[in-house]
Design a protein around this nucleic acid. Structure first.
Lengths: 151, 151
DNA sequence: CTGCTAGCGTTGACATCTCAACACTAAGAA
DNA sequence: TTCTTAGTGTTGAGATGTCAACGCTAGCAG
């Protein structure tokens, strides 16, 4: 073997092999993210007839009390101006949000939008627990938080 | 105004606070994935005039010796038939791959495609190290591998 | 008033991803 | 042979994301 794995004979089969190649570790990271994402979305947004970006925006508006400047919304999500504009246009056509000019542009939940996010919100927490945190030990969560913060 | 923020005004300071809410933990996961992804792609695919899906497909073909059945390629990536078909059509138009009917469809690297992936491959490993594994301790990597496998 | 600059948002073009519907091939049953 | 079924690919439409270019508004200098 070109990569020494320490003295152990072979206590942990494939795990160490996968760890040797950074690229494989990265692939595992991507895979894990994708799997959790698909399951959470299936249990929340899709179940309510919303897409993932719909849910993201509605949740942020709700957390902010129901309305935000478009630029603040974009900043809080780390989204591009163009991206938020297109997404809000689509959501406006479906009656989830309204936009009004007031210096900048203020985005607000409609009744329909508020109803949708209120219905989904508790399920979101449940879904994340079921598909992610319930499968991890407290110590693993601590480790991951530390890692995520560093990246 | 209508939303009580507890005592502190800072949104994300205390690790323990973020850990308490599964949804925040999930947000941190998504953010970490996105940050690493953007940096790795910027250092590899974009630097070579390729997109992320281009790179993914070229790397898999290269690892398999230069050609694969379209269905095997899709299976090894966990991609949809439709997705691989559209992507290969676009890549074919740019001269990166060819497709030939032989029972199923066999996808092969062109000279141009092989040149591209050969040029990028070493940089990919370096980029993943720089933006991910170099920032983690050996023990953290062990923990993450264990977690990723479980999900 | 005119012109400049900067911030903010929109638009159009294109790439990507997903879904539903269709086409082709191979294998087996009638 | 003919029909059926399963496996495999393609196509078109719609949703999403990114880039470049443009338009609008506000503030500020001339």
């Amino acid at each position: 073997m070109s990569t020494p794995n320490g003295g152990a004979t072979a206590p942990d089969e494939a795990a160490t092999d996968a760890a040797c190649e950074p690229v494989d570790f990265w692939s595992a990271f991507k895979r894990a993210h994708e799997v959790v994402r698909a399951r959470v979305i299936a249990d929340t947004a899709e179940a309510a007839g919303l897409s993932e970006p719909d849910l993201t925006i509605l949740a942020n508006l709700d957390k902010a009390g129901g309305s935000l400047r478009q630029s603040e919304l974009a900043a809080s999500l780390g989204w591009d101006r163009t991206r938020i504009s297109h997404q809000l246009t689509r959501m406006g056509k479906r009656g989830l949000v309204t936009r009004e000019r007031a210096g900048g542009v203020t985005v607000a939940l409609t009744d329909s939008g508020r109803t949708a996010i209120t219905a989904v919100h508790p399920g979101l927490d449940t879904a994340v627990r079921r598909h992610l945190t319930d499968k991890l030990s407290a110590q693993e969560i601590e480790t991951l938080i530390s890692v995520f913060r560093r990246l």
